[in-house]
Amino acid sequence: MIEIKELHKSYKMGANSLHVLKGLNFSIKEGELVAIMGSSGSGKSTLLNILGMLDEADSGEYTLDGVPIKNLNETKAAKYRNKFLGFVFQSFNLINYKSALENVALPLYYQKVPRKQREEKALKYLEQVGLKEWAEHLPNELSGGQKQRVAIARAMAAEPKVLLADEPTGALDSKTSYEVMDLIQKINDQGNTILVVTHEEDIAHMCKRIVHLKDGVIVEDKKVEQVRASQYV
């Protein structure tokens, strides 16, 4: 599903250049649930943003679902993002003047799904994350956990090939974190490919594989016994 080879990325800051990703290689198969672990500043978000086509690598190869991702213009990138990818951010990134339902329906708007179908589908996904009753509420009327569940519903609504989550539990307390992880595990159980960036051990162990980043290189890449989040909920 995802394949990267010799991926490099550095940030230029004036005369200095910060080499953040130093030749990463890995591949992720369909249906995997992968944690990208590492301490703060190790380049996890940078990697995820490149995988999400929100940013570009300086060099290296990236193939998504058999499609080489290279020299994309913004329009193409937007279309690929819309078709292939769902995003979940640490800070939720909901549009604050849109209701939960409208937020979830937004990616479908860019897929040109007719309004009625959009709303039906969005409602279906809200139901899956247990927020059907909150459909008409604005983000600021929701708790952090609820916001993140809306964000997950939004990411899933477009039925992406890969779900990319950058510290999805970073802003949540541990109980809420486990609820969110429980949801992510269930989505994975349905066969969806998911990448979760985290710096928390317990969250990482709720995935099936951990890729450990340190100073821009992969220091460890191992399969783990998945800890089910449902037991803590």
Binding site: T75, N93, I95, P107, Y110
Partner: peptide
């Protein structure tokens, strides 16, 4: 607009 783009809004949109 960044959020919209992440969700698939093209520059034209």
């Amino acid at each position: 607009l960044g959020i919209r783009k992440a969700l698939g809004a093209t520059p034209r949109a």
